[in-house]
Structures are given as structure tokens and as C-alpha cells.
Nucleic acid binder design. Structure first.
Lengths: 357, 357
DNA sequence: TTGTAAGCGTTATCAT
DNA sequence: ATGATAACGCTTACAA
């Protein structure tokens, strides 16, 4: 940033002291209308904006929040960022975004390093609070040094994580109810009469995967039986769904009755693979999913999925973060809405009279 | 941010002066190994990170870049942000993200206000450079006060805009070749023998829309005729494509031979609408598109579109921004790769022997 | 090699 | 209502 005009210079031009300039900047009433006008004019003329750096130095506040994401191309994260921004801005905060791109790389060691370095950068920036939306923290086994780095960070500025609680982590966690979501879609499929149901997608070793798979298995155990050959884990993307479906097709003489995809993207891959084999959901196989990504009702077929109401998640996380920043007692806020089944076409359920278009 | 340990405190604990501490922080060789070790130990022990605020005050550098987007849920923007981050990080920069969410709201007046306020916030933050990825700057008629605000911003820190040059704007512009892209897909359709071709999607009053539409019309004029009733503008989303297709279906006895969608999202809406009428591309109508959004080869049908190689766009913009920051003479970099036609299924062209996947 | 001190642009405290 | 001045945490001459 080029050298800006400073309040000192403004004071000089206005023939007053810096304190008076500072006062008009901060709407302090103790300034005579005349001086105020004169100073304001110089300010406007020069498009002067007070330096947050200098302000931050004395106030120990930067009005900046750090947001750490592991994959900004994932709609789940952008949704979250969007909400966070929408709620942070009116409160006067700006976001420092760190996109580590560590999701689904399989490069565990270096990924951890990237995230830890992000923490360092955040500490340097003296942000007022930190939001962590995913990454290493979602792993089944979180690296010790990561936890330690996170705790260090949390000792400098309050940290809120959107994810499942990790033992030994001092940060505040805001959790989604993964179990209930998968149970919902699995029961839907079971209720439609399907018994032979598979589970597709998700990276092994990541807790979202294991929790969702566990919920799937638990539900299946109650009503039917688990067929391990119909469980194919790999990742969270369309290609994952495509590959998994292809594998099931290749290894089974007959199609299973139904499939639970770990998310809508994976389901999309399943649809594509089915189409390539002259098959489709729900006619040949029912496919249910989770996450209700944007535009799910434009897919072919329209996807039946579970809406976890992530739109409140960002708001809740921010609510807690603000309380931590203000050193308030943590007070309960609206809790995440319960996950909600969105019945569309892909599972073959009868649709309510007026289908959403 | 809670009160941190400072170099002063470290100096005290180490029994040296602040300058010596500063020296080890900056890898200045003029420090005795003994002192260095002692100081480093205290630094590590306390997880000390030097304050960028204080550093920025003296160096007039914050190692921060502001990025302004109008819709972070748009894959075009997230792609860009992703690349920018990937290239900025190694250079030591962190991103201050401003997501104005002003895309496609139709709220012109207040949208401009939001963007102008973003500029103010950026000026306060004393960032080293600014990247603007869309928003008001894309409008057919850019508000005067916006241009003026942008110029003010540009006078404080270098600004690079990814978009078409706007008269009166001092910022540096990095442009995409919209004309060539649309010409490419339109010619493809024409070459396949189609003559009656429509154009669907895009917000009127936005330059991307008018430029693409103009290129479409110019190409059509050369080879065939323009049928205005087959031109339906509205917006950039699946619903836009759906609505436009529905309108064409409702107002025409016969399907046109082909359609150019303004982007892949809009095409997706077209596909869905066709399916709802028992129709599909390319059998009943050829549909070509632009932008090559992620996962286009998982759509049903796989979409034929134009890849504008946006992956180099962020890098180019950053390249220029760095030069501006360093007050270098602007030197030409790799120019955007020429747009490339991606032939998949939706236009009905014969596929090369080895189709992807 | 090491320390002293000025300065970066604000706010805040204290006089006046 | 206004103005000096210290303080915020760091870098950087300059001195020693």
C-alpha cells in the first residue's frame, strides 16, 4: 500500500492537533462544528481511511476473522463461507481466507504442514477470532502436532471448529448430526421396501465417512442385513461415485436394490455410470443421498437427499465466536435444525401432489 | 486477539535488547550463536509470532491481498480464488476475501453501495494489492461513483480486475476472449448442420451477456439467420435455463434445432426441462454451452462446451499485480490460452474414438 | 556483535 | 473544546 495521508498531516492542514482529528474520526462529540467541518473536508478530499494497522496496535482489535477451509471448490464450504461473511460483515468483521486445498489429496503429512503454517500466518495477522471448517480436524486420527498447533492458536485467539469434537482440543466445536442424516435416508430406502442396500463414497479415515457409514450399518442391522460387498469407499467426488458404481456393476451379477451415496456429488457420478450402462434411478435401482447440494432438483433424476440445514451452521458458529471474542459467558443459541429428508425422484417414492419444479 | 508476548518481553527474558531479538526474527547473521539460541528458545516456548500489524506499520507492507468476488457460490469464482491462493501463498501473501453477493440480485443501487463499502474496508486494511473478480465492473453501464471509488482505491494500492476494460478506470484489466468462445460453440453447431439456433441465459445489462450474445448473433448472421424468438435472456443459473427452455417450448410448435447456453449451469437447467417433457439432447435438440464448469462430463448428457482455460487467468492477474506491487515495469506474461472446444455428447457430434472415461 | 532511540499511524489519558 | 504525550510492537539507522 502506497504511503497514505495520515491524521498528522490532516491535523497540520486543518491547523489542529491529531487528537481533534482522531475525535472527528471516532464521532466524538467534543469537537466544534467549525473544526469538524474543516477536518471532514480534508478527510473527504483525500479519501482518507484510518489505518487498521495503527488502530489495531492500540486497540488490540483487527476486526478480522480468519476462516480456514480445506477445499473452496466444495459447495458445502462455500455455502458456509457465504453465510459467515453475510453475518460477519454487519458486525464489522472482514474475513481472512485460508484455503489449504488439503481435502482428498491423500498427502497426509504435507497437508498437516500446510494447515499448521496457516495457523502461523493467522497468529501473525492478530485476527480477533478463527473459524475452522474442515481439513485435518475431520480425520479419524488427528495428528498430535496439529492438535498442539491448534491449541496454541486457540490460546492467542478464540477458535470455533465446525466439525466433530476432537479429544484434547481446546477449541469450541459446532457439530452436525451425521448419524441422524444417514439414518433418515437409509430408513427411507428401507421403508420403500428395499432390503439389499449398498453404501458408496467417502474417504476412509475421515470421520464424516466413518460416522455416516456406522449410521448406515446400524440402521441396516436393525431392519435387514449388511452386505459388505456393496460398501465401496473412495472419495467425495462424482468420479468416486462413478468408479464405485462401475465396481459394483462389475462384481455383481445383479444390481442391488438401492444405494446410499455419501453426498450428492457422489450420487451424480452414480447416475452417470448407470446411464452409461443403459440403467437409471429409480427404475433400476434406488439411490438416496445426503447433503442437499445446490441444484439437486436439476439433476437427472432429481435427487432424494437429506438437508442438514447447513445454512444455520455458519450463523451458529459465528454466534459462539462472537461470544468468545467478547469474553461473554457462552450462552446457548438456536441449535442446528434437525436434518430433513428431501424426497425427490431418485429413490422412487411417490411424490406429493405438487412436485417442486 | 489476546495480548501476546512481545519482543520486548522476550528481550527482557533473554537479557538482551529488542534489536537483537528482532535480528534473530529476521535471520540477521549478526547475532552470536549463544544469544540466538537463547532467544530462539524463548520464542519457541511461547509460540511467539511477530505482529504483522507492527511490522506493517514500519514496512508499509501487510503481505495481504484483497480479493473481491460477487458470488462465492459460482464455480468460476471459486476456481479463480483457488488459483489465486495457490499462487499467492508461496509469494507470502494471504487473502482478505470480500464476497459481496451482488451477482444477479437485480438490486443495482444497493449492490454498488456494498461494493463501494468493500473498497473502504480494503483501504483501511492497507493491503498490498487488490484483485476484483466481478460485480458492478461487469455491468454494461458501470455506475460513475463506482468507477470513482475504484480509482480512489487504485490510488492507494494497485488493483487488477479480471474482466473487460472499462473506460475511465485506472485499474489494470485482464480480459477473457468472450467473443471467440461463443463463436467456437456456435460454429460447432452450425458445422453439424443446424441452422435454427437459439441463445439462452445471461442477465441483460451485463457485459458478459451482451458480448456473448453479440458474438452469437454475428456468427449466425454469417451462416444462417437470427431468430429473435429463440433468444431468451434471464440469468446464469439452472433455473434460468429451465425457464427459458420452458418458454421456448410453450411458444413454439416445433423445437429449434439447437441452442447455445450461456454457461454450463444454464445448460443443466435446459437438460432438466427437456427431460420433463420427455425430450433430450442431442437426440431432440443439440445444446452447446460455454465455461466448462467442473464435472461437466458427469451431466446427462455429457456437455459439449468451451473451455476458456480460466486456470491461467488467476495466475496472469497475480503476475501483473505482483509487478505493480513491486513497481516494476509491466512485462507481458503468458497470454490467456485460446478457448478450446470440448466436444462431448450434448451437440451430437461424433465422438473421437477414445471418449473420456 | 550489541544496544539505544526514533519512527510507523493511531488511540487514550491527562492537562489546559 | 483542544492539545501534548505516552503507548501499541516492531524495524532500522546509528552508536558503541
Amino acid at each position: 500500500m502506497k504511503k497514505n495521508i495520515t491524521i498528522k498531516e490532516i491535523a497540520k492542514q486543518a491547523g489542529t492537533s491529531v487528537s481533534t482529528v482522531s475525535r472527528v474520526l471516532n464521532n466524538n462529540p467534543s469537537v466544534s462544528p467549525a473544526k469538524r467541518a474543516k477536518i471532514q473536508a480534508i478527510i473527504d478530499q483525500n479519501h482518507f481511511q484510518p489505518s487498521m494497522l495503527a488502530r489495531g496496535m492500540v486497540s488490540h482489535k483487527t476486526n478480522t476473522l480468519a476462516v480456514v477451509v480445506s477445499d473452496i471448490n466444495n459447495p458445502y464450504f462455500t455455502d458456509l463461507i457465504s453465510q459467515i461473511e453475510q453475518n460477519a460483515r454487519p458486525a464489522g468483521y472482514t474475513l481472512l481466507l485460508i484455503n489449504t486445498m488439503t481435502a482428498g489429496t491423500g498427502q497426509d503429512a504435507s497437508d498437516v504442514q500446510v494447515e499448521i503454517e496457516a495457523f502461523k500466518r493467522i497468529m501473525e495477522a492478530k485476527v480477533d477470532g478463527v473459524l475452522i471448517l474442515g481439513g485435518e480436524i475431520d480425520k479419524e486420527v488427528v495428528a498430535e502436532r496439529y492438535i498442539s498447533a491448534l491449541n496454541t492458536l486457540n490460546s492467542k485467539a478464540p477458535v470455533v471448529v465446525i466439525g466433530q469434537k476432537v479429544a484434547g482440543c481446546d477449541a469450541l466445536f459446532v457439530e452436525r448430526d451425521q448419524k441422524r442424516s444417514v439414518t433418515l435416508i437409509t430408513q427411507h430406502l428401507l421403508a420403500l421396501g428395499h432390503r439389499q442396500i449398498g453404501f458408496v463414497g467417502g474417504e476412509p479415515g475421515v470421520r464424516i465417512t466413518s460416522q455416516r457409514l456406522a449410521a448406515f450399518k446400524a440402521t441396516m442391522q436393525t431392519y435387514s442385513e449388511i452386505d459388505e460387498s456393496l460398501i465401496v469407499l473412495n472419495n467425495y467426488y462424482p468420479q468416486s461415485g462413478y468408479d464405485a458404481m462401475a465396481q459394483i456393476l462389475a462384481t455383481h451379477k445383479q444390481l442391488p436394490e438401492a444405494l446410499v451415496a455419501i453426498n450428492d456429488r457422489v450420487a451424480e457420478g452414480i447416475f452417470r455410470c448407470l446411464a452409461d450402462h443403459g440403467l437409471q434411478a429409480p427404475q433400476d435401482i434406488a439411490v438416496g443421498s445426503c447433503d442437499n447440494f445446490p441444484y439437486g432438483d436439476f439433476l437427472i433424476p432429481r435427487i432424494t437427499t437429506v438437508d442438514q440445514h447447513n445454512e444455520v451452521l455458519g450463523r451458529i458458529a459465528l454466534h459462539y465466536l462472537f461470544q468468545l471474542i467478547d469474553h461473554k459467558q457462552l450462552e446457548q443459541t438456536e441449535t442446528t435444525h434437525l436434518p430433513e429428508l428431501i424426497i425427490r425422484e431418485s429413490c422412487g417414492a411417490k411424490l406429493p401432489k405438487e412436485g417442486k419444479q
